[in-house]
Simulated assay, not measured.
Amino acid sequence: MRLEISRYVLIGISQISAAAAPREACGLLFGSANRISDWQVAENVAETPEIHFEIDPRTLFTALKAERSGGPPIAGYWHSHPSGDPTPSATDAAMAVPDGKIWLVAGGSAVTAWRAVERGALHGRFDFLAVDLID
């Protein structure tokens, strides 16, 4: 499967991720199941942000409330791996609900995209998405 992502989204996520290192950065993705057009940074409220991420619930609830009122739909989530590996970890898979949402992982100079599904190819939870950049 393929996913279209705005170039400015990837540039922004990469810049925030680099600035947050050695902590993991995280946030929300907006758009549709096959196209990401916007993003948002969220505070990482994990107890160990150097190796885990947890999106600030206030940010998530605010975005959900806005979505229900006609705001931009939440298409998924993004986070960084300061280790440089842009592949979802087994911990990421354990956290992911198989709801079809997109998970973007930034590591080093690379960003990869995945869909959270039942019986995914990676860790039984994620299927890889090829990324097409759009302006």
Rank of each mutant, 00 (worst) to 15 (best):
V131G: 03
W39I: 00
A33S: 13
E47M: 03
I16H: 07
D135E: 15
Y77N: 04
A75I: 02
S109W: 02
R58T: 14
S109V: 07
S14E: 11
P82E: 12
N34Y: 03
L3S: 00
A121S: 13
C26F: 05
V9Y: 01
A21S: 14
W114L: 04
E118G: 03
S89K: 06
A94I: 05
A106E: 12
R23P: 00
P72T: 14
L129S: 00
I51P: 00
I36T: 05
S83L: 12
P49Y: 10
A130D: 06
P72L: 14
F61T: 11
H81E: 01
T87A: 10
G100M: 10
E4G: 02
S37G: 14
D132W: 06
P86F: 06
D56F: 05
R68K: 13
R119K: 12
Q15M: 14
A63N: 12
A66S: 13
T112V: 00
T87V: 15
G70L: 04
S80E: 07
V9K: 03
A18R: 14
L29F: 10
A21H: 04
A116R: 02
I36A: 08
R119G: 00
Y8V: 09
I74Y: 06
L129F: 01
G70P: 06
A93I: 09
A21Q: 11
T112E: 09
I13A: 06
A46H: 11
L10R: 13
A96Y: 01
L104F: 03
S69E: 15
D56M: 04
P82M: 10
G124H: 05
E4A: 14
A90K: 10
A63L: 12
G27N: 03
L10F: 07
W39S: 04
G108P: 04
R35V: 07
A63C: 08
G71N: 07
M1A: 15
F53G: 02
V111N: 03
G84R: 09
L129G: 01
P72M: 15
R115L: 00
F128K: 00
Q40M: 12
Y8W: 10
A75L: 01
S109E: 12
A121K: 10
G108Y: 07
V111E: 03
G100A: 11
F30S: 13
S89P: 06
V9S: 03
R68M: 08
S37L: 11
N44A: 11
G71P: 10
D38C: 00
M1K: 10
L122Y: 07
S14K: 12
I11N: 10
A18V: 10
I36E: 06
F53E: 05
Y8P: 01
F61R: 15
I102K: 02
H123N: 10
T112G: 14
W103N: 03
L3W: 01
T59R: 13
S109G: 05
T87K: 08
F126A: 08
L64Q: 13
Q15S: 12
P73L: 07
A25W: 08
I5R: 02
P82V: 13
